[in-house]
Design a protein around this nucleic acid. Structure first.
Lengths: 247, 247
DNA sequence: AAGTGGTCTAGACCACCGC
DNA sequence: CGGTGGTCTAGACCACTTC
């Protein structure tokens, strides 16, 4: 059967993953500012080295579940909401996280040459060297009501498009084909809706809207997707968590 | 002299910091997708253990300067812009990063009891138990022109307010007093400007604006500041980098 | 002084990539 | 197959907090 690089199913569970999820379950039963056992105790309990414990704990710190105080201990974070958003999600995943049901109406789907602007955003200095793109324009709805108008352009060469359903979650389908998008640069701006956009979104002309422009990259830093999404401001806001030091 | 917990000036330079900045300089002279030396070579070069090398490299990966490919090597990332924003910055720092000169006009500064809503956002279930706050409302300008209206409320108990200049960078001054804000939850929304706001920002009534609401936390997860900032949409956008997996 | 997390060493084996 | 990054061990000393 298929071609796609098979990522070994049921691969060995990393020890730090075992410790991490065990601690996560334990944290769920604790109160804010409760103390976790010292790392040296956890070593004995899980029968692993201290570095493995520290890797597990540091992942929990990065996720905001616990915090360290040097010379004192490791403690449960008081804010649980804080792990909300910061991760790259497509519209469908985003809506499901918010407890809404996503749906789509496909407005246009084309297989076209990349415009000079798109080519530039994808990192091609010379537009002629840029492969064609699949251009998809969709009205995205949540619980049946219009939420956003989205335009995405993906390098046609990175996926098997005959297997893609344009009304479903693009990110999830691309991931299923082995395309790993790891990072995206987004620009969030506020705009007043124009006549056409207002009509599509069932809003008044001039109503405020959130415009998110995006360039997505693989782990190797190759840009594979550009897009922009125009959200109804009365139904959508953008939750992020920012940190002072870069991790 | 002062009280503040003095964080040892000129503390010992960590070995991984030395390696990190040395590699950073080297990367600056390389091209995208160029190969970094293998970790075992770097061990010998810097005369440190492999774990120290890996810690330095992993920080560069987290910052987006390089990427790893298992079984192959470590390579220079093609996108340099990508380390732009994601870190928590105050207005002054933000503007300087964008190459603009920040200034302020103080509209109001009060020492008041926390409103029930503010107390709730700071994590106090019972407003009566919440300490008073210092409330500061400012017009923020960039290169002399209005950019944003900002309201911040900080727990009065966490700083020595007699030493704070309300027209300067609040975050930097609080940090100078030893108050470490590590993380903030932000909600970004688009709004249409009302009459009063429009006048202050020198915009038309109904013009789109970006509204950022924020709750800031220390490393221990204690909320110490709430605030919201209203930016002119024609002069400001919000650049962030999101990752697929939380670090 | 004792206990904690932070840094660091010098090894080892594994999983994966490219030849 | 050799070389690479990914994981893991069993220690050590340091910096800091708490008593």
């Amino acid at each position: 059967m298929a071609n796609v690089t098979q990522q070994s199913r049921t691969r060995r569970r990393r020890k730090y993953e075992v410790v991490e999820s065990a601690l996560e379950r334990r944290i769920a039963g604790l109160l804010p500012h409760d103390t976790l056992p010292p790392e040296r105790d956890l070593m004995r309990e899980f029968e692993v080295s201290r570095m493995t414990i520290r890797q597990a704990v540091s992942r929990l710190v990065a996720r905001g579940l616990v915090y360290n105080v040097q010379g004192s201990g490791t403690f449960v974070s008081p804010v649980e909401v804080i792990t909300k958003t910061l991760t790259l999600t497509g519209f469908s995943e985003d809506m499901r996280q918010r407890g809404l049901t996503p749906s789509s109406r496909v407005l246009a789907v084309d297989h076209v040459a990349a415009s000079p602007e798109t080519a530039a955003r994808l990192g091609y200095d010379d537009p002629a060297t840029c492969p064609p793109v699949v251009r998809l324009r969709r009205l995205r709805c949540a619980d049946g009501a219009p939420m956003a108008v989205e335009t995405v352009e993906v390098l046609a060469t990175v996926a098997d498009w005959s297997a893609v359903d344009p009304s479903g979650s693009l990110y999830e389908q691309l991931e299923g084909q082995g395309l790993q998008i790891v990072r995206a640069a987004q620009v969030i701006a506020a705009v007043n809706l124009g006549v056409e956009e207002a009509k599509i979104l069932d809003q008044a002309v001039g109503a405020a809207a959130i415009r998110v422009s995006r360039v997505s990259y693989t782990g190797r830093g190759q840009a594979v997707e550009v897009g922009h999404t125009l959200y109804r401001a009365d139904r959508y806001d953008f939750d992020i968590v920012v940190t002072r030091e870069p991790r």
